[in-house]
């Protein structure tokens, strides 16, 4: 817009800089600086508590690579992400289709389904510690089926699936809202025309309209789901702290422990966080290329 400025443009741009200044001061101090600093730290043996700081090059990265624990954590995270994201996306879409009605009852019941979205992950985790505990609801439900009661979170086989279940339970409503928004943005004349064309059964509506029209919502939900899942921390920390026997060990626990429990390993922690960053980027870019193929 060369040459075209509002009268009083200096007043305007000065106001603008004043208005964005707080944001950029905060972003600079608490986002950009830490991000850069994090890379710097990852190249050092960095122990701020004992004032022992020296350059180690890429050794931190090498030790993360060499760590079987980190590898295990990444594999766990990938398994977790695959299961949780696919299930919750499916469930969210299903719930949205169910609740996308103008019944009074749908408004009321919907409000209950959103409850996990406002509950803190710690509180939810605690409720689910009970759910999976020996005296908990899960055993109560399974008892008639003749399944012996046990504390599911103490089992190396079932602890991780239990956490998956909790997260599917609590994040599905969240993504359901996005699908609801998507469904409501389909103009009703389109569905009326479809009805006239004989698209009446719920399945054909889903197959030929809702699903293809909400492809982008689906990909959005999937990407957000992946980013959230790979960074899983709160629930694992509260419910199992990575155990039993590393069955629920995930990268964020690895990173957290190295920063928090072993101050001498902060550099390693930073290096691991960068590797996690790379993994997230790779997945995001892969998704992006996938999206590029699609016309929407």
């Amino acid at each position: 817009m060369a040459g075209v400025r509002d009268a009083g443009s200096r007043l305007e741009s000065r106001t603008a800089y004043l208005l964005i200044a707080p944001l950029f001061i905060l972003l600079g101090s608490f986002v950009f600086f830490p991000a850069a600093f994090s890379f710097y730290v990852s190249l050092f043996h960095y122990d701020p508590f004992n004032h022992s700081i020296y350059y180690v090059g890429f050794n931190n990265y090498l030790s993360v690579f060499d760590s079987p624990l980190f590898r295990l954590a990444v594999i766990n995270a990938l398994i977790y992400t695959t299961v949780v994201v696919s299930t919750q996306t499916f469930l969210a879409f299903g719930l949205a289709l169910l609740f996308n009605r103008r019944f009074l009852i749908s408004k009321v019941t919907r409000a209950f389904v959103f409850l996990p979205a406002i509950t803190s992950s710690v509180a939810l985790s605690i409720i689910f510690i009970w759910f999976f505990s020996k005296q908990g609801l899960l055993n109560y439900i399974l008892a008639p089926l003749g399944i012996a009661s046990q504390n599911w979170l103490f089992s190396t086989t079932y602890a991780f699936p239990s956490i998956m279940m909790l997260n599917i339970f609590s994040t599905s409503p969240y993504f359901m809202i996005m699908y609801l928004a998507g469904l409501q943005s389909i103009p009703s004349p389109i569905m009326e025309a479809a009805a006239i064309d004989g698209v009446i059964s719920p399945w054909s509506k889903f197959r030929y309209f809702y699903f293809p029209m909400l492809t982008f919502t689906t990909l959005f939900v999937v990407i957000l789901g992946i980013i959230g899942s790979i960074q899983l921390f709160d629930q694992v920390f509260v419910m199992t702290d990575g155990g039993p026997a590393y069955a629920t060990y995930v990268p964020m626990i690895y990173i957290f422990n190295r920063a928090y429990l072993y101050p001498g390993l902060i550099g390693v922690s930073a290096a691991a966080s960068f590797l996690l960053f790379v993994i997230i980027m790779v997945i995001t870019i892969a998704q992006r290329n996938f999206l590029k193929e699609m016309k929407w």
Binding site: A7, G8, L11
Partner: peptide, 23 residues
């Protein structure tokens, strides 16, 4: 009105040149 500053040219209102004056 002064909502767009012209690339060039002069605007006079009531005998007063108003270029650059706030709306």
């Amino acid at each position: 009105a002064g909502l767009v500053e012209p690339t060039s040219g002069e605007i006079t209102i009531d005998g007063r040149v108003v270029n650059g004056i706030y709306p």
